[in-house]
Simulated scan of single mutants.
Amino acid sequence: MPHNLFLHPALVGTRRIKRGAGVRQASIREANLYTTIESAVALLFSFIINATALIVFADIYSMNRGNTAIGTMVEEHLPGLIEAAELLRGAFGNIGPLLPWLCLFISRSISLVPTILIGVLATSYLDQLDEWLNVLQSLALPLALIPTLKLAQSHVVMTSDFATSKYWRAFGWMTAAAIIALIVYLLLPLVFMLATRGVLSACLAYASFTLYLFFVGVLALDNTD
């Protein structure tokens, strides 16, 4: 989630920090520690839920791929978002369907009503909406990740006491490069698919993809502190 790269670090600003001489730095470090724990716990639950759903879906898809009759693939309905609750029930038991609901209700109560309306009124389009949402979030991820890394390593913004060390800086940029490479790899089939829909569509697809890569490159190479 690109927005979480900004929201989770911003939690530090909500904590009361002692600003007296000689205690401010220790107070900020304490705020960073508890914010890290808070974010890690929240992300751990999200990771478990999403990983479980992904593994169960992949297992069902794999079994469906292997189900053949006279050398011909048997086309069966693959599960989508509508069936997600039942799949989680099979993995976690009766508490499974409640885990996503509680997570959404607690952490995303503001968006709960629009989510329910979309779920009720656009049932047949949920999987397509989810796919395009993932595409848009993957496009936005480098635009949030790169500035976050730059701000974290900036001695002007973070001061020399809290700027990331060279080792964490190297780890962060290597991780970012791997993530961006995966995003490009996953976007290429979409670009090629759009390119098959005519000359105009091909020009727009390739031009947009090139412009996007150029913008990400400029953002990463910009040395402005």
Results as ranks from 00 to 15, higher is better:
P79S: 12
G217P: 02
L213P: 04
D130E: 08
P147E: 02
N67K: 07
C103E: 05
L182I: 09
L43Q: 11
A91N: 07
L129V: 03
L54T: 14
V199I: 15
S201G: 03
V216F: 03
P189Q: 10
E83Q: 13
L7F: 10
T115M: 09
T175K: 08
L190R: 15
I118E: 08
V113Y: 14
G172Q: 07
R16V: 05
K150S: 05
C103R: 01
A163K: 12
I37Q: 10
E83S: 12
R169H: 13
L87H: 08
G119Q: 06
V199W: 14
F47M: 13
P79R: 11
L194S: 13
V23M: 01
S124N: 07
H155V: 05
N4P: 00
S39H: 04
V113P: 02
Y185M: 10
L200P: 02
I37M: 13
D127N: 15
Q128I: 13
L104F: 15
L117F: 13
G198N: 15
Y34D: 05
F92A: 06
A207K: 02
E131A: 13
L44P: 00
S208H: 03
F209W: 14
T224N: 13
N223G: 05
P100R: 09
D59Y: 07
E86Q: 09
L211Y: 12
G198P: 14
D161K: 04
L33C: 02
T14F: 01
A177Q: 06
F45N: 03
L7V: 10
K166N: 10
A42K: 07
I95V: 14
L188C: 04
I17P: 00
A144S: 12
P79I: 04
I116D: 03
T123F: 06
P114N: 10
G198I: 13
